[in-house]
Simulated scan of single mutants.
Amino acid sequence: MDDTPQLPQIKVEPLEASVGLRRLATDAIKHAITNMDIYDHPEEVRLDERQLSRDLGVSRTPIREALSLLEQEGFVRSVPRRGIYVVRKNKREMIEMITVWSAIEAMAARLACERATPEELAELRAIAEFRKQNPATHISEYSQTNMIFHKTIIRMSGCVLMSELVENLFIHMRAIRSVTMRQGDRAQRSIVDHMNIVAALEARDADLAARRVREHTLGLAAHIEKYGDFLDQFQSTETRKRRYA
């Protein structure tokens, strides 16, 4: 019996070969990374060109081009003689990303108070009420819906640039929220915060909505400041592996 531990791998679907394969491969790999809990295990996530080629049903050339583009966008990093790895942030980097996210989303909330339609607000309330009774038993599903909630607020701002700016933050924000939702009563407290944010948006109170969004998101930064040392442990392990490779 093989007792070798199974390393984390991303899951991708075969591509249609009718349009630009590099773009399709890039989108497929990015989607797979975004939907993976990259902070939920100590092992690095290594991307294998041959495996991706087989999984996506294309040659290695568009895979190589896609990985190069993803490296430029900050999703992966190339380590000489070792391969391509999904980027993970250390504690300080994560707190900085959350701080940027909070500023953008607070501004988005202000704009949403002016621009959001009643239908959009109803959609946001429905998202906030997801698994309202017992989110702790559906953490993975709830975590995904949690990020949809925040991205919906940004979308309701009507500012496309805001959505584009936070897209690269999304992979790390979603993944770290998935981890922290399992810690203490953060899932339940998050629901209360979300309902309060929705109420402020429905009241079209821009100052209150912006403040509630900012305080909610910065609460995650404070949580990472207090409990996020494991992020530095991940990076220390990865650094040692690169040093002695």
Rank of each mutant, 00 (worst) to 15 (best):
I139P: 01
W101Y: 15
N196T: 08
E13R: 12
E65P: 06
R115K: 13
A126D: 08
F170G: 10
K30E: 00
N90V: 13
E215F: 03
A136G: 09
H223S: 13
I171E: 02
R54F: 03
R60C: 06
D55P: 04
Q188Y: 08
A187I: 02
L69K: 14
V45G: 00
Y85K: 03
A32Y: 06
D3W: 11
K91Q: 14
R155E: 02
F75Y: 15
I197V: 15
T217Q: 12
G74N: 05
I139L: 14
I127G: 04
N146R: 14
Q235G: 07
T137W: 02
A136I: 15
E164R: 12
F234V: 09
G20S: 11
H150V: 01
G57W: 06
W101R: 08
L161M: 14
P118C: 08
N168Q: 15
Y85L: 07
L208T: 14
R110F: 04
D205V: 02
A66E: 00
A175L: 04
V79L: 11
H194Y: 09
T237P: 05
E238T: 10
A128E: 05
G83H: 03
M94L: 14
E164T: 12
E164P: 08
A206S: 15
E16V: 15
A206E: 15
D229Q: 09
R242D: 09
A103C: 09
E71V: 05
L169M: 13
E43Y: 12
P118W: 07
I176H: 00
T145W: 02
A245L: 12
A122C: 08
A206Y: 09
H194G: 05
R115Y: 11
E119C: 04
S190K: 05
Y142K: 01
L56S: 04
V58K: 07
H172R: 01
D193M: 05
F75C: 00
V100A: 13
A116T: 02
A103E: 14
R46L: 09
A222N: 15
T137P: 01
T26R: 08
R240D: 10
R23M: 07
G219F: 04
E164N: 09
E105G: 03
G158A: 08
F170H: 11
S53T: 07
I171C: 02
S190F: 06
A17L: 14
P80D: 04
Q133M: 10
T61C: 01
A210R: 06
D37Y: 08
A103I: 11
H223P: 11
E105T: 07
S18P: 01
E167H: 13
I171S: 05
E114W: 09
V45P: 01
L56F: 02
